[in-house]
Design a protein around this nucleic acid. Sequence first.
DNA 1: CGTTCTCTTGACCAGCATCAAAATTTGTGG
DNA 2: CCACAAATTTTGATGCTGGTCAAGAGAACG
Lengths: 245, 245
Amino acid sequence: VIELKGLPADCAQRRGGGGCAHCQARPFSVCASVPDADLHRLDALAETVTLAPGQALFREGDPAAHLFNLTSGSVRTYRLLADGRRHIVGFLFAGDFIGLDPAETYPLSAEAIEPTTVCRFRKAEYRALMAERRELETALLARAGDELAAARKQMLLLARKTALERVASFLLDLPGADPLRPGPEGVVRLPMTRSEMADYLGLTLETVSRTLTRLKRGGLIRQMSLTEMRVEKPEALRALADGDA
Amino acid sequence: VIELKGLPADCAQRRGGGGCAHCQARPFSVCASVPDADLHRLDALAETVTLAPGQALFREGDPAAHLFNLTSGSVRTYRLLADGRRHIVGFLFAGDFIGLDPAETYPLSAEAIEPTTVCRFRKAEYRALMAERRELETALLARAGDELAAARKQMLLLARKTALERVASFLLDLPGADPLRPGPEGVVRLPMTRSEMADYLGLTLETVSRTLTRLKRGGLIRQMSLTEMRVEKPEALRALADGDA
DNA sequence: CGTTCTCTTGACCAGCATCAAAATTTGTGG
DNA sequence: CCACAAATTTTGATGCTGGTCAAGAGAACG
């Protein structure tokens, strides 16, 4: 059963001052394309929304009134099949943008998986800004290209990789395996449950658990806590992930 | 083993006159966003390329010098894993655009699967036109959003659907099940091989063949020829595809 | 008309799913 | 801080979907 907590109307606050200027996520986000001098324009549109774990940002089918930029925490996006099978489309982290799809209603649901803050814009207002600040549209097009590339990578994983290869790929794709992001080198945070990993990787939670155990036994990774893994042998993991048979 | 025929340098011809004005694919393509009055600008940039079956448009890793618009025929795009496993990323038909990904090199290979014509643009020239004709950039962003939506649909299919559901979804997604496109109502063209369907759907060619046989036996589809299927019971097929258990 | 390629069908098998239960972690109230 | 309840993870036993291997039937092509 899935949490159905909505989003209270008063959760967001329009900010007066210049939040964007010291936004941690800006270097990773599309906002980076807006020059410092024009930041006040963004600030004027932005609302800050704070989410508790399990709280929904929006649900599949809701009118798509907003665009979002994740500033901290993490979010899962998912769709359901009629009989309850769930597919987690992606996990989003600081700097990720939500709302590239121009559809009138959200094509998927989005929920926080830990305490999370997002920057929210009214779609119409954001589009107006885009029409004016061309570099923002260009940045979004570039971001859309990146997302498409990531989606294709994931399709390859789902279509042709084994369970072992999927889990290895997943660990390497998470931020934290990424040297650019904050946190100790080589330590991967796993804020999501095994069940969520499974629904993302097209496996069952048992298979994910067993596979992680195999990787631990093989010394490729070491479990620091339930939500943190240390990658001990990145090259070996990469070889697995890429199916270098 | 896969065909490795390249693209001869003389395959393309810069056209003088106004090909775009009577282009069959224009209503379905991003070019529709360019008003008739400005069509000569597109025409000035466009080269027509003719491809024989199996001929490559480009290969993964090639410098991404061009963007393409498919005007007739069909194309497969694919990536390979180190040990030879193939993933077909998509099948493209008239009106489809290739090159949304802003990467410097092509992230996948593209080959014709039947006699095909494409409209080719130098990336730099096209970008220059985009910078000037804003509605083109907006149309591309919208197209990117559509592609992303399609990619997510495919990820759901690969992550959570059974073989039967995958094949049913595939038959319904092909143009031809689409009432807007030309051809007799309800007849689906399958210009690709069983092996290609399999590499697209994350199955084996045997499973695809067996599944099509099941659908035929069940009277949901009828085989007209090897490359044509008639959908006899669209609702039943749709129910299967959506997993309405 | 034979060669070759693709498709179909069959027999068997393996990887992952399913079902079930124990171990561990998390959360809550006293 | 501890005890207990609930949730998540891990591990085990078993089964099924779809993969693998193999052979035969159609199509396509020269």
